[in-house]
Design a protein around this nucleic acid. Structure first.
Length: 584
DNA sequence: GACTGTGGCCGTGGTG
DNA sequence: CACCACGGCCAC
């Protein structure tokens, strides 16, 4: 073993990589190597200066001259996949899975089919590298590194507060402004955020969507919001009572920085149009600047950051709420029908019959309001139709404008978007949306009824019933024993599989009648030997589909006349039906 | 702890 | 049975 370990050190020094990656190397391979090196009294000398890697805050690894970047972790951050196993993710991205070796019986496998085990190990390492390249995370981090002026290691392993620190401390230093070392005190209280407009259920025609460009950064710039301008003598009075100095008296360093970033971004975007050969690089840069700009507001609201200030963060959100609600009120007053809005967006029923008319309407609203507010309210898209069952943060629509995304179906919030819904659920809802948005409500109902009935009889592929959710450290839960995800994780451990807190765990419900409901873990590559509770799944499917369909029960006439008032058609709330009614 | 925020939906289990 | 707290995930 010492020889193997020595050879590993030599291999790294010989290949001299900038980046070292693997699947869950932070939590598995690195600690294991460290432990075996220690046990065998071999120095773990893989740094560019031959120094050993060090674990920082029990999280990531620091290595001189190289960056250790865990593909598992990057996949979670970038993709939010339904399942996080190497096999699932590599099949999804590369159409290629792991080699078939029984890892629970690795000793015997090594004895009996050594070459296969070697192949298996190489394949695992290769898949991690291919995934790492495929998600282009290194590019993204390098762009962020460029615009935030940080070394790659800090961008890869640091939080967003690191980015803001980098820009803000440099700037403060240049202007002789003192900066706190760390947060003075931890605060638990919260403050109000964005405004969300309620939405009535229905199918809407020709919906114009307007969207503020960089809402929170714009508020900071427009009202000179900064810790350097917060003052009782300020003449700019925010809705929350906070006062800020006029930029003529003193320009804040945060608004100044953001204004600069916004200009830089516009400049990069301009170059992008002129210089097609550099498109990808410039696009990466402008996206990174956007990320950076949006980071400022968030860190001002944290409970522990050095620049935290609740007066400032709540001034930003209060200004944003005032801005959007007053615009919505004005629109309503002037006869425009606002049907929805969330934080920085406004959805308006245009009442137009043709696309051209609707486009003209959207452009006019956008330029009128932008001019009046001295902000940029962009005309983003038109959806026709747009569906809502009457809940905030959930809608589905067919995009008809801009032409680049015309025909696309856009879904927000619903089960089709959620990684904790089972495949049958998301696929069925997706079909229902397709039908509804093609204005075939009857077809959708028929499809839903047939499917719900079929599932109850057990005529369904087991793999479509897998539910997946993350599980934290068991001790963080008030009542861990009553939670399906925790119980699945415990059974996973019993089955000899690895469980790392924070990981997603998959299971199938086998008896929902019990309390807590009985679940069995679903393990990739192993045969599932239990019987799913088909009635439970049928019921959940019915809930999902019926929630959508019953909101359209009150007649399809609603979408035949775009001028009609949607609310009138839903005066009487349809009675909630149970599963028996659905079968009739 | 994978240290940027609030608003919101929904399934589950516990309580009276 | 109504109501509530919890927890996870998602829209901004």
């Amino acid at each position: 073993e010492p020889e193997i370990l020595e050879d590993f050190n030599k291999l790294v020094q010989r290949e001299d990589p900038d980046i070292i990656t693997g699947y869950n190397i932070d939590g598995y391979d690195m600690p294991l190597l460290e432990e075996r090196m220690k046990f065998n009294k071999v120095r773990f000398s893989i740094g560019r200066d031959y120094i050993s890697p060090r674990r920082i805050m029990d999280q990531y690894w620091r290595l001189h001259g190289r960056v250790i970047d865990d593909t598992w972790w990057e996949v979670r951050k970038v993709l939010h996949p339904k399942h996080e196993t190497l096999n699932y993710v590599s099949n999804m991205l590369l159409n290629e899975g792991k080699e078939d070796v029984n890892r629970l019986d690795i000793e015997n496998e090594w004895k009996n089919r050594r070459d296969d085990v070697i192949k298996y190990c190489i394949k695992d390492a290769r898949l991690a590298l291919l995934i790492y390249r495929k998600i282009r995370i290194l590019d993204r981090n390098l762009y962020l590194s460029t615009v935030s002026m940080l070394p790659l290691d800090d961008v890869t392993n640091g939080g967003t507060s690191t980015y803001v620190d980098s820009l803000l401390i440099r700037r403060a230093d240049r202007e002789n402004i003192g900066v706190p070392m760390s947060s003075s005190k931890f605060s638990n209280d919260t403050y109000a955020g964005g405004y969300v407009h309620t939405m009535d259920p229905g199918l809407y025609d020709m919906i114009v969507v307007l969207d503020f460009k960089s809402m929170y950064p714009s508020m900071i710039i427009k009202y000179n919001i900064c810790f350097t301008t917060l003052s009782p003598e300020g003449t700019i009075v925010a809705p929350n009572g906070a006062r800020f100095l006029d930029p003529g008296v003193k320009k804040g360093i945060i608004p100044d920085l953001l204004e600069q970033l916004m200009k830089n971004r516009d400049e990069v975007k301009k170059q992008m149009k002129e210089d097609k050969s550099n498109h990808d690089y410039l696009d990466g840069l402008q996206a990174a600047i956007k990320v950076l700009m949006n980071t400022f507001y968030g860190v001002l609201g944290t409970s522990f950051y050095r620049f935290t200030n609740r007066e400032i963060s709540s001034a930003i959100t209060a200004y944003a709420r005032n801005t959007i609600t007053s615009i919505i009120a004005d629109l309503d007053k002037s006869g425009n029908k606002v049907i929805y809005g969330d934080t920085d967006s406004i959805f308006i029923e245009s009442g137009k019959k043709t696309l051209d008319e609707a486009i003209e309407y959207g452009n006019r609203l956008s330029s009128d309001i932008s001019r009046k507010e001295n902000l940029v309210l962009e005309f983003e898209k038109i959806m026709d139709p747009l569906f809502s069952h009457g809940a905030k943060k959930r809608y589905a629509g067919k995009i008809v404008y801009p032409p680049s995304s015309a025909g696309e179906i856009l879904v927000r919030g619903y089960e089709t978007r959620r990684t904790d819904s089972f495949d049958l659920q998301s696929e069925a809802l997706s079909t229902v949306f397709d039908l509804i948005l093609s204005r075939d409500v009857e077809g959708a109902k028929q499809y839903a009824e047939d499917l719900v009935k079929e599932v109850a009889t057990g005529k369904i592929d087991t793999s479509k019933l897998v539910i997946s959710r993350s599980v934290k450290n068991f001790s963080t839960y008030k009542n861990a024993g009553s939670m399906a995800n925790v119980n699945a994780a415990k059974k996973l451990i019993d089955a000899g599989e690895t469980f790392i807190p924070g990981m997603k765990v998959s299971w199938i419900v086998t008896d929902a009648g019990k309390t807590p409901q009985a679940v069995e873990p679903f393990i990739d590559g192993r045969k599932f030997t239990h019987t799913p509770d088909y009635v439970y799944y049928s019921k959940r499917l019915q809930e999902t589909l019926n929630r959508v369909l019953e909101s359209l029960d009150k007649e399809i006439a609603v979408f035949k006349n775009p001028q009609s008032k949607i609310t009138d058609a839903f005066e009487e709330k349809p009675k909630k039906r149970d599963i028996e009614d659905f079968f009739k």
